[in-house]
């Protein structure tokens, strides 16, 4: 959805480069297992797709002659270090096994939970939020939100399905969207363009 917006409108207005770069980092750290484990063709294709689209979006926003001029750097002020440092620290302490790939995987789980924050802050400062931007954020939130249903199903049907790091992070991630979803639903019901209160 985001690539569609950027390519069709030649603009990344209202999109946080910080969030996009954090997602690229999340996918790098999480999908290192592409090199040493195979789960299914679907799983591999989706991992490669996420990596490719994340990097493509960052490339457009940073280097495309037209698109990069629409990036509002002054408004996108969230500091990377405030998200990366606590997640890295937490991953070093709270993990299933203290190995490089496992710690990086855990770091990616924690970082994904909070990676939306720069985007949410930027949207709060934006007067006219594009429909595509609003839909993109809603879909991103719904993506992990729907996982919760899947986790309940898997917990009930699979014997060794215990993933508390993933569950807690996923619920926290979804909770961060709660406020956004509330206003998204209100505006959708009223058939109005999304506006977030300051």
């Amino acid at each position: 959805v985001l690539l569609l917006k950027i390519r069709a409108t030649r603009s990344c207005r209202g999109i946080s480069l910080k969030t996009q770069e954090l997602y690229a980092l999340v996918f790098i750290c999480r999908y290192l297992d592409l090199f040493y484990s195979y789960i299914s063709l679907y799983n591999t294709v989706m991992k490669v797709t996420y990596l490719a689209t994340a990097f493509s979006i960052v490339r457009y926003m940073r280097f495309d002659k037209v698109v990069r001029q629409t990036y509002d750097k002054e408004q996108d002020t969230f500091r990377y270090i405030f998200l990366i440092a606590p997640c890295a620290l937490l991953a070093l302490v709270l993990n299933h096994r203290f190995s490089p790939t496992e710690v990086l995987w855990t770091f990616s789980i924690y970082l994904e939970a909070v990676a939306i924050l720069p985007q949410l802050v930027l949207m709060q400062r934006t007067q006219n939020i594009d429909n595509l931007t609003a839909n993109y954020v809603a879909l991103l939130g719904a993506y992990r939100g729907f996982y919760i249903l899947n986790w309940i199903y898997r917990f009930a049907t699979e014997k060794h399905y215990r993933q508390w790091i993933v569950w807690i992070s996923g619920v926290a991630q979804t909770a961060l969207y709660a406020d956004f979803f509330y206003y998204y639903a209100l505006c959708w019901k009223a058939n109005q363009r999304l506006q977030l209160p300051a």
Binding site: I39, S40, K47, H96, R97, Y147, E158, Y161, R162, V166
Partner: peptide, 10 residues
């Protein structure tokens, strides 16, 4: 190792 080592979710 238990099942947790197999990260099959995206």
């Amino acid at each position: 190792d238990g099942e947790w080592a197999r990260h099959d979710e995206l």
